[in-house]
Computed example of a mutant assay.
Amino acid sequence: MLGEAGIRRLTAEDWAGFRDIRLRALADAPSAFGSTLAWAQARTEQDWRRLLAQRAQFLASAGGVDIGTVGGLDDVERDGAHLISMWVAPEARGTGVSGLLMRAVIAWAAEAGYRAVWLEVSDGNTAAERLYLRHGFVRTGVHGPIAEGDPRLEFEMVRRL
């Protein structure tokens, strides 16, 4: 039993913990992300610190164990936020942690004054799409490859704030 989960926003000083959970996410669900485990493993401490300085990254923990993460980036072109890097550890799935993470990034975007939150989800990831639908996201009709040269597809969803 993990216990009750808490959410906190990471700072650049939390780079090692962020690295660890991001590597776990990429190892667990490589088809859900545009980046790869090998690419993330090659990042330096400075790279990880820079990532955390450029985004709002949230971490879910329970019983001293990190069990999930989600990030938010400024999307000034759309006057919105871009939800990225959503992942919950297998042992914490179905416990409400994903909802806590979603509410954290949506609250961050609303407090920042954004009008919407956008995200992309890999085609076929029905569990993630159901989560996003429960939190008010809808498909926009935009879709394309996950990354340049990658045959996997993703589609865009948005939630107006």
Rank of each mutant, 00 (worst) to 15 (best):
R22M: 04
A109W: 07
L153Q: 15
E154W: 12
G113N: 06
A5C: 03
T126A: 15
D123M: 11
G141I: 03
A40V: 07
P90V: 03
V121T: 07
A16E: 15
M1L: 12
A27K: 01
D150P: 01
G144H: 06
R115L: 07
D28Q: 02
G149I: 02
A32Y: 04
R8W: 02
A128N: 05
R103Q: 14
G94K: 04
V70P: 00
V142D: 15
E77T: 13
E154N: 14
D123A: 14
T36I: 09
E4I: 14
W108Y: 08
D47R: 04
A32V: 06
G34I: 12
G68A: 03
D79P: 09
L59A: 05
T140F: 06
P151Q: 11
V117S: 01
Y114V: 06
D14R: 07
A60Y: 00
S31F: 10
G68I: 09
T95P: 00
A112Q: 15
G136S: 05
E129C: 07
R19F: 00
D74K: 13
E111Q: 14
I146Y: 08
E148L: 11
A116L: 11
V158P: 01
V105P: 02
I84F: 08
I21V: 12
W15T: 04
T140P: 03
W108T: 02
I106M: 10
S31G: 09
G64K: 08
T69N: 05
A127Y: 04
S35I: 11
R19W: 03
R103Y: 06
Y132G: 08
V138S: 11
V70E: 00
L119I: 06
R139V: 01
D123V: 12
F33V: 12
E154Q: 15
G136N: 04
V76H: 13
